[in-house]
Write a protein that binds this DNA or RNA. Structure first.
Length: 433
RNA sequence: GGAGAGAUGGCUGAGUGGUCGAAAGCGACGGUUUGCUAAACCGUUAUACGAGUUAAAUCGUAUCGGGGGUUCGAAUCCCCCUCUCUCCGCCA
């Protein structure tokens, strides 16, 4: 959520920054300001009334103490109808505030000044490229073929157990997935100094609001119901990313400056309804309803947000480097960034069988946008309360990493060579039919 | 699922209708004392919103788990919800 004070004081600046996203959000600023002004006007009125009521009530208390009942009754009559006026105004204040906040909740974050201007993914600048596309001395198969051949994933039975877009990992496939999770966690824990957390996978609405998933993207979530109790629908959701619970760990808290930076790493499956993407449009495991991910979250002092973002991207890149994969880092332009983000880097790994790059990580600094939504603050050494920066990044998503891995390291004989760092976890250097 | 207990400031804990935003203790911070440390003593010690100011000061309102109600007035009375704890049942 944007700071209403910033909007009040620098409306033009906010409008201009929002406009760079190209979604027309800046058009809602005036309405938000109108409700805000309305709220403050009514608030002034009602507070004045409350002050007078408090004054008289105190006088009544004094009179009662002096046993002057008649005088007290007279005072009571005097204030009796103030209560009704207060109730009416209170309601109007609440309505104005709700109207204002409803708009604010749907406004995306302001892009950071360093973000490239652009309309769509085509305008995203490539920041750097690591390695080169592997030159297979044969026509590389795509991961669906490889998975069939090596019996890594049973797509048909996965769909039978759940539905289209759900996977059944089998044999070496299941083991490879688990090995990757373990490898990623160990890397970030031991080499990058993140603290591991394992969050609930069923989370409440507040988490979804806090990170900005709700109210705008409510249709993308899997809602959970308790048994047959329809009234529980809307309380709990399957997490779309571990960012939702983990970023909310310190919701409604005031952190001491000395506690920062906080770095969390969490493995979790991620559930995405992908409503509107009928049939998901993609073959295999590139776009699915459930996938595994290792997520990185940081809470840092505001002046360290961008420095920490660069480090986070580097942490995610290390994953791909260790696994011997070719990738590129792109920066999302203003028109392509996510709702809560002020600056985002995507990491795209090369998948030879697809002949394209796949997004396996998205690292963002959301600045104080989410902190304001979830009321997360920090107390500086001087005793001031300020909003920290909240960062999230994939470190990395698993399904697509799996794709890139088997497609990159496939051999002419149909086997898949396992990169060195994974071998201890997998207890083999090669997956053969 | 059944029965019961509880939720007050950074912490412990008093407060059952009226100067209570809230005693006391602890902690923290500032000061006095001291060669230093400790102790002792004095003082300060919540947040949000709004008004105000260049910035402060200052003023107002709200906040005692959350929401609603009764009342001139609610931490205190009533209702609903959430969470925590104890016991029983069930269960990975």
């Amino acid at each position: 959520m944007l700071d209403i004070k910033l909007i009040r004081e620098q409306a033009d600046f906010v409008r201009q920054r929002l406009a760079t996203r190209g979604a027309g959000d800046e058009s809602h600023i005036d309405e938000a300001l109108r409700w805000d002004e309305q709220r403050r006007k009514l608030l002034g009125e009602v507070e004045e009334l409350k002050a007078s009521r408090n004054r008289v009530s105190k006088e009544i208390g004094v009179l009662m103490g002096k046993k002057e009942a008649a005088a007290a009754e007279a005072k009571k009559a005097e204030t009796r109808d103030i209560g009704d006026k207060i109730a009416t105004l209170d309601k109007q204040v609440a309505e104005a505030e709700a109207s204002r906040d409803q708009i604010l909740m749907r406004l995306p974050n302001l892009p950071h000044a360093s973000v490239a201007l652009g309309k769509s993914a085509e305008d995203n600048p490539v920041v750097r490229v690591h390695g080169e596309k592997p030159a297979h001395p044969f026509k590389p198969k795509d991961h669906v073929q490889i998975c069939h051949h090596l019996k890594l994933i049973d797509f048909e039975r996965g769909a039978k157990l759940s539905g289209s877009g759900f996977l059944l990992y089998t044999g070496w496939g299941a083991r490879l997935e688990r090995a990757l999770i373990q490898f990623l966690l160990d890397l970030h824990i031991h080499e990058h100094h993140y603290t591991e957390v394992s969050p609930p996978y069923v989370i409440n609405r507040e988490c979804m609001f806090g990170v900005g998933q709700f109210p705008k993207f409510e249709d993308q979530a899997y809602a959970v119901r308790e048994g047959n109790d329809a009234s529980t629908l809307g309380k709990f959701y399957l997490l779309p990313t571990a960012e939702a619970p983990v970023a909310n760990i310190h919701r409604d808290e005031v952190l001491a400056e000395s506690q920062l930076p906080i770095r969390y790493v969490a493995y979790s499956p991620c559930f995405r309804a992908e409503a509107g993407a009928a049939g998901l449009g993609t073959r295999g495991m590139i776009r699915v309803h459930q996938f595994d991910k290792v997520e990185l979250i940081k809470v840092v002092k505001p002046d360290q947000g961008y420095e920490e973002l660069e480090k986070m991207v580097a942490n995610a890149e290390t994953v791909l480097q260790r696994l011997g994969l070719h990738y590129r880092v792109i920066q999302l332009c203003t028109g392509d960034m996510g709702f809560a983000s002020a600056k985002t880097y995507d990491i795209e790994v090369w998948a030879p069988g697809q002949g394209s790059y796949l997004e396996v990580s998205s690292c963002s600094n959301c600045e104080d946008f989410q902190c304001r939504r979830m009321n997360l603050k920090m107390k500086t050494e001087d005793g001031d309360r300020v909003m920290p920066h909240l960062l999230n990044g994939s470190g990395t998503a698993l399904a697509r990493l799996f794709v890139a891995l088997v497609e990159t390291h496939q051999q002419a004989d149909g086997s898949v060579l396992i990169p060195e760092p994974l071998r201890p976890y997998l207890r083999t250097d090669r997956i053969v039919p």
